[in-house]
Amino acid sequence: MAKKIFSPIDGGTLEGIARILGNTEYGLTGTELSRFIPEAGLNDIDPTNTKWKRLFNSFINYQNQNKNSNLILKFINITMKPSRFIGESERFEFMRGELNKRLSFIGLTLNEAGVFNPIDTSKTIREAEQRVNRFKSKLENRNIHSKIYEYCNTELIAENYFHSVFEAVKSIFEEIRRKSNLTLDGGELIDKVFSVSNPILKINKLQSGTDISEQKGFANLLKGVFGMFRNTTAHASKIVWNIDEDEALDIMTTVSLIHKKIEKSVTTAN
């Protein structure tokens, strides 16, 4: 079977890939570039330049000579092998996500095994970002309250379910404190703010038995969320307390409902 020849990658996409792989904070080291550039069959034509420019020039030199991107993709495969990131899964997923935003413009995605899969080519930045960040896209489809994005946008971008849940649940109590002007936390805060006899915040008019039951039920829901999710995520490592995407989506939907209730709640005149 003839080896597939991949078309050259446009300069802008190629620069974006080089900037990610050569990033000073999370990318490859200079020593790694010296190792992996020749291992991929590329020429290290500018070894004294900054990392991303060194890599970009190597890429461009190859494409100009060979009129394809095969060894550039091989370089990505070599450097993004999952086995290289044992103990650094967050770094791997972040780099993979950022690379996939660029790769989507040439109809490729790098899967969790570090292997390329074909996809429909992205045409816009929004399309590329939404394609990569499935979790955030699914939350948007559920009409999640905007406060969640304010408190945990970084974690959502990285698709870090554990910390997304932690920050989202924390946001509930930050909003309650902000709206009630109290500095309490946990059950003490909930009891004080959503009391039925002397409330600071009311989620309804508190005039009927049904209203009172709803206010009490909401307070109990808050305590349950605090105990099950905030306390757990604050004290357990994400290795011990694992959250998958479906669970995270369900938790975020509950947090969103709570935020919508808090937003509509009325401050008493007390």
Rank of each mutant, 00 (worst) to 15 (best):
D244R: 04
E214D: 15
L14V: 13
K101N: 01
T121C: 08
I144W: 10
T124G: 11
S213F: 12
L257V: 12
T31Y: 14
E88T: 08
L55I: 06
A236E: 09
N111L: 06
N141S: 09
A234G: 01
I20K: 00
I37R: 01
T124K: 11
L71P: 04
Y149G: 12
Q65P: 08
N133M: 03
I37E: 03
L33E: 04
L201W: 03
D250H: 10
V165E: 01
S83K: 09
E140A: 11
E167C: 07
N153W: 11
Y149I: 15
N143W: 04
N153I: 10
S34K: 01
N198F: 13
V169C: 05
V115I: 04
G30A: 01
N61E: 14
F94R: 03
I144G: 04
T109Y: 08
E129Q: 01
T29Q: 07
R96S: 04
E32Q: 14
M252D: 02
C152R: 02
Y151M: 06
L71K: 08
L182D: 03
N68P: 14
R126H: 07
N198C: 12
T13A: 07
D10F: 13
I76T: 04
I5Y: 13
G41D: 07
N77L: 14
G97H: 01
R19M: 13
H259C: 12
N204D: 08
F135G: 12
P82W: 04
S195R: 03
M95W: 00
P199G: 05
T210D: 11
G41A: 06
I239K: 00
I9M: 10
G27E: 02
P38T: 06
K264I: 07
T48K: 04
T254R: 09
S122A: 05
I251E: 00
N181K: 12
K53W: 08
I258Q: 03
L14D: 01
L99C: 10
E15W: 15
Y26I: 06
M1Y: 13
T267P: 00
N231T: 15
I106C: 02
P47E: 00
N242Q: 14
G11E: 15
E175M: 15
T232R: 07
T267Q: 14
I251D: 00
K138D: 15
L99D: 02
E159C: 05
T232G: 02
E15H: 12
A40Q: 08
N43E: 14
L249M: 10
S69V: 11
T121D: 04
G107V: 00
A128C: 05
I157R: 08
L206V: 09
G16M: 01
I45L: 07
E127Y: 03
S180W: 02
T124V: 12
T50C: 13
L14S: 09
T154P: 05
K261V: 13
N77W: 07
N68A: 09
F162L: 02
A236Q: 09
L249I: 09
I148S: 01
V169W: 00
S256I: 13
T29Y: 04
N220Q: 11
P118H: 11
D44R: 05
E175Y: 14
F162A: 03
I5T: 15
E245K: 10
I251P: 11
G30S: 03
M228K: 10
M228T: 15
D46I: 10
I176C: 03
F56T: 10
